[in-house]
Design a protein around this nucleic acid. Structure first.
Length: 607
DNA sequence: AAAAAAG
């Protein structure tokens, strides 16, 4: 039997040095990784060398490959050796001097300056002021107004500045203090609300602050012991979370590794062997890795499940339960768990009850529900007219576009076949398009996404694989060529535009085949102050399907979910719920942030 | 019914 202890080496090992300090291990805990590397030897106790850090990294803003030693523009922040316990200047002592941590911010410099017009990049913070936020639970830590209000550590704060995040989004304002205080969290929030940072910041900060040391299982030297696990439903979302997490963890010494299917497993295995603190994964590939005994979950201290409702929709519940409950992961209470979900149906409630320990419930209003950031249009289009109608839209858009450029347009269709044939047809007709769906190889999918993002093929035809979570900046227009059957899917799809406070356009092609969606669609549009065409209202009346497709049925109202503990036997002593929810709205007061106001180039922490 | 995810 292996028991869990944060400070101790994994039990059941060979008995070598099972105490709280690392000894002859390959593993260098993050808080010790800022030491100079002693040549090629496995990390052995080294005397602390003060501020003389070997900063063998690529200099920020420098030429690729032009390594700068401890002299980059940030060396003032980085080389100070100040603060207790070597808080900053964690460098990758990891690699024992060999591997360079690629600067994840480099690629962002000069990306698509054309697309970043004044209008597009200015953040519409005001539009979010009235996003409702609801928290409930025992002793909820108060929200913060700036990132600086929380002690995330210098290195992380620096990366927040590098990301140009000025002030926290509503979900971050609430979730970060909750998570920092060690509490479990069930959060109802959409992608685009800033979730990724909301769970990454506390994890990275926690790993840096803790003195967790992992004793490698000497009989299984190839087994990886991540401290944090982030599960997400699709490969692309995992890739995206990984990319963001790498930015947040840059030069913190915290290592982030991603594992997902469809890609060569050997590369991922090699990455894992180099050490991993935060593992981002899709469920299938992780189960594979666990079965191969290449990953152990017994050191997991943080577990984050992103888009949990989506994962259940996709039938991942068995895999997820296997990973969380039937492997060697510490139970609730001995780990910190954060569950994110756009909706809160019964299955998610069960998951929350099983995975979380006296958690805090947080619901953030739908982005766009109370604003006009996304202009929604519905047009009546017969199946046979859809293609020519799309063509008209694209022509008009090109004519209105900047320098005759096609604005990025995401076209959702129902089937994989339909995606392929529409892509082909668009290309034939002079509209550079590509497609992303589950029948394409992972390589093709990633290539398509890159080609779209870069504007090489400004039209992307997609199935629902791209509906949720994917952050593609600058998507100007989402076309629901085929409407989904579920209104939540619709919300997710149109959420691919109007991101980061930018405005966006969503056009839907509606006909008889979509009548089941009429009611919920017209309700949703009404709620978002959109113009609802009269004919759609007629459809809505005619197809009174008892509100089966209406939002909020059963699983919650406008927040996409309620804390069910207050509805049922979870009440203590029959009294009311824990003292009632605290209703907060938007940002309270002005932001101290990082000073400097918001220039036109400021991106926000929304994504 | 279709889509996604482990090969």
């Amino acid at each position: 039997m292996s028991s869990y202890s944060i400070e101790r080496a994994p039990a059941g090992g060979s008995g070598a040095g099972a105490n709280s300090h690392f000894s002859q291990s390959n593993y260098v805990p993050p808080h010790l990784r800022n030491r100079p590397s002693p040549t090629e030897q496995p990390a052995a106790p080294i005397s602390y060398a003060g501020a003389a850090f070997g900063n063998d990294r690529q200099g920020y803003g420098g030429q690729p490959g032009g390594g700068i030693r401890n002299g980059g523009p940030w060396s003032d922040v980085n080389g100070g050796g100040r603060g207790g316990g070597g808080w900053n200047n964690r460098n990758n002592g990891w690699d024992r001097g060999r591997e360079r941590e690629v600067n994840p911010f480099q690629e962002d410099v000069n990306t698509d300056p054309e697309l970043g017009t004044e209008e597009n990049t200015r953040i519409n913070f005001d539009a979010y002021e009235d996003i409702p936020v609801e928290t409930s639970g025992d002793n909820v830590p108060p929200p913060v107004n700036t990132f600086a209000d929380i002690d995330l550590g210098d290195a992380l704060n620096l990366n927040i500045r590098r990301c140009k995040y000025v002030k926290p989004t509503p979900v971050q304002r609430h979730a970060i203090p909750i998570a920092i205080s060690g509490r479990d969290l069930m959060a109802c929030a959409q992608t685009g609300s800033g979730k990724t940072a909301a769970f990454c910041f506390p994890i990275i900060s926690g790993i840096m602050k803790s003195n967790i040391s992992v004793q490698r299982e000497t009989r299984m030297p190839r087994m990886a012991f991540p401290l944090a696990l982030i599960l997400s439903p699709t490969r692309e979302l995992s890739i995206q979370i990984h990319e963001e997490a790498k930015k947040f963890a840059y030069q913190t010494g915290v290592r982030v590794v991603v594992a997902y299917g469809g890609a060569p497993i050997n590369l991922q295995l090699r990455e894992l062997e180099r050490g991993v603190d935060i593992l981002v994964a899709t469920p299938g590939r992780l189960v594979d890795l666990l079965e191969r005994a290449r990953v152990s979950l017994q050191m997991i201290k943080y577990l984050a499940l992103d888009e949990a409702d989506r994962m259940l929709d996709m039938g991942f519940e068995p895999q997820i339960r296997r990973i969380v409950q039937q492997m060697d992961m510490p139970p609730p209470g001995l780990r910190q768990t954060m569950l994110f979900s756009a909706t809160f149906p019964k299955e998610i409630q069960r998951l929350a009850a099983d995975f979380l320990s006296t958690y805090i419930f947080l619901a953030v209003g739908r982005v766009g529900s109370s604003t006009d950031l996304i202009v929604q249009r519905v047009e009546y289009v017969l199946e046979t007219d859809k293609r020519s109608h799309l063509m008209d839209l694209l022509h008009a858009q090109r004519a209105n576009g900047v320098q005759g450029k096609q604005a990025l347009t995401l076209v959702f269709v129902e089937t994989k076949k339909g995606a392929d044939s529409l892509e082909h047809w668009l290309c034939m007709n002079g509209f550079p398009a590509t497609t992303i769906h589950g029948d394409r190889t992972q390589q093709e999918r990633e290539y398509a996404l890159r080609s779209f993002k870069s504007g090489t093929t400004p039209i992307l035809v997609a199935t629902d694989v791209a509906a949720r979570g994917l952050d593609i900046p600058h998507v100007a227009h989402v076309v629901n060529f085929d409407l989904p059957n579920d209104i939540d899917d619709y919300v997710h799809r149109i959420g691919r535009t109007g991101r980061a406070g930018k405005s966006g356009l969503a056009t839907a092609f509606f006909n008889e085949n979509n009548s089941s969606l009429a009611r919920s669609l017209s309700d949703l549009m009404q709620e978002a102050n959109q113009e609802v065409p009269a004919w759609l209202s007629h459809f809505a009346v005619r197809s009174s399907n008892g509100g089966r497709n209406r939002r909020g049925g059963g699983s919650g109202g406008r927040f996409g979910g309620r804390d069910f503990r207050r509805d049922s036997s979870f009440n203590r002593g029959g009294t009311d719920f824990y003292g009632g929810p605290h209703i907060n709205s938007g940002y309270g007061g002005p932001s101290g942030g990082y000073g400097g106001g918001y220039g036109s180039n400021v991106t926000s922490a929304w994504d």
